[in-house]
Amino acid sequence: MQTLSNRRGLGFWLQLGFTLLVCALLTVPMVMSMLAGLTANYFVGLKSGLTLRWVEEVLRVYSGTILLSLQIAFACLACTLVLGVPTAYALARRPGRIARLVEELLMMPVAIPGLATALALIVTYGGVGDLRSSWLFILIGHVLFTLPFMVRAVLAVMGSIDLTTLEEGAASLGAGFLRRFATVVLPNCRSGILAGSLMVLTLSVGEFNLTWLLHTPLTKTLPVGLADSYASLRIEIGSAYTLVFFLMIVPSLILLQGLSKRGRPSV
């Protein structure tokens, strides 16, 4: 008994220590930055006192970018759901050379630097109507960038369940294609769809590379505004901005995480 718990104790403490170290590595800079957004004067330090002044200023000046970011993120989610889920389904049902090729092609925007993709978009569609000055231009970039993540996440779940047989079972009971898709395919891929949605939302809200090239002064998203404020304003404002960003993204992360846990299919 004693040797067992001793041995486990050592391993346990080592593991705990390592985990905490990694966590600290990841979170300390974030916490520092958020704290900076709450201090009255960063150069004096915490003893200058805590204040919400900077946060208020960010909300006053940048609320437009926050709303636009959210608008683009949810529009992007809608697009990737409508495009990505059927794509994943088609790829899952027809495994073969062509399907693999399509999968690789879909990954292109992830592999190529965002700036290059953005340039390509501008060269190709920049002259089309008012698109260049519309938020839809950024949306197109975001959909291009996030779609593979949705497809991959859904495809992973579709590959882990025997979709063909489930569908054949539903068909044998008289269900046509649309009904099968709605009552059997979608519910059983729920965890993948939720995981994909989570990825898409967070990637879209935080996307900078593409967006920086695609944006105009009137279509500024949160990360672009963040870069501006870091470059041109007091460090406290930039940090307060980071704080706002976190407050926005973390609850949605937790929410989706919880949802995907509950929806995980148990086989």
Partner: peptide
């Protein structure tokens, strides 16, 4: 076709 089918893996709906 209105057939009833029992699959080797049952193909029951887990949802």
């Amino acid at each position: 076709r209105n057939v009833g089918m029992v699959f080797q893996s049952y193909a029951l709906f887990p949802n």
